[in-house]
């Protein structure tokens, strides 16, 4: 058991955990940050993706002790960071995922959104192939990735003031751009 001082979402948090506990276990079961999910146990699915010093890594294959000294960002950190940066609502990636239907069961999406956020931080205007490659370590079983890609492209379109994607089914449905709720 060791005392760990972790920087999570900008907070310095002290907690104690045995050496063999992963960052995912400490985030979820010690710190109550259950937004990071566990899907495969061992690095195969990406659901536990968090940002360590801005880069997407798998919290299930990172020891909690190894994260000491790094800045950890979980899904719970995106909205507060956005508000602190002077924004309103939620992070544009979160908003686009919600608006575009990317959140079906939502289980893989905290990891997916963090990967997308890291991508856009590094490259504000990636093309579709670049987005697919960047997201290719995050498995989703609901969406067929289509609305996820639309969401990322919608977030890009908003930040670059360009045209958002218009999937085929929207051609017949005039109401799809209305977001009343």
């Amino acid at each position: 058991m060791r005392v760990l001082t972790l920087d999570v979402n900008g907070d310095r948090l002290e907690t104690a955990a045995p050496d063999h506990w992963t960052l995912l276990e400490v985030l979820r079961y010690k710190l109550g940050l259950t937004g990071s999910k566990q899907g495969c146990d061992k690095g195969d699915c990406g659901a536990c993706t968090v940002l360590v010093d801005g880069k997407p890594v798998l919290a299930c294959l990172t020891l909690a002790a190894e994260a000491v000294g790094s800045k950890v960002t979980t899904i719970e950190g995106l909205r507060p960071a956005h508000l602190e940066g002077g924004g309103t609502g939620v992070d544009p990636v979160q908003d686009a995922f919600d608006r575009c239907g990317a959140l079906q069961c939502g289980f893989c999406q905290p990891g997916m959104m963090l990967t997308a956020r890291a991508l856009l931080n590094e490259n504000p205007n990636p093309d579709r192939t670049e987005i697919q490659k960047a997201l290719s370590g995050n498995l989703c079983r609901c969406t067929g990735y289509t609305q996820i890609l639309e969401a990322v492209e919608t977030a890009i379109a908003e930040s670059t003031e360009s045209e958002p994607p218009r999937p085929a089914w929207t051609q017949d449905h005039p109401h799809v751009r209305e977001d009343a709720l």
């Binding site: 999910k37 719970e76 995922f97 608006r99 959140l103 939502g106 999406q109």
Partner: peptide
């Protein structure tokens, strides 16, 4: 008939949704 947001979308987007 309109493409509204989902009722649980924001909870899922922010990690608040409880599984």
């Amino acid at each position: 008939g309109k493409s509204h947001r989902k009722i649980d979308g924001m909870a899922k987007a922010t990690g608040e949704a409880v599984y």
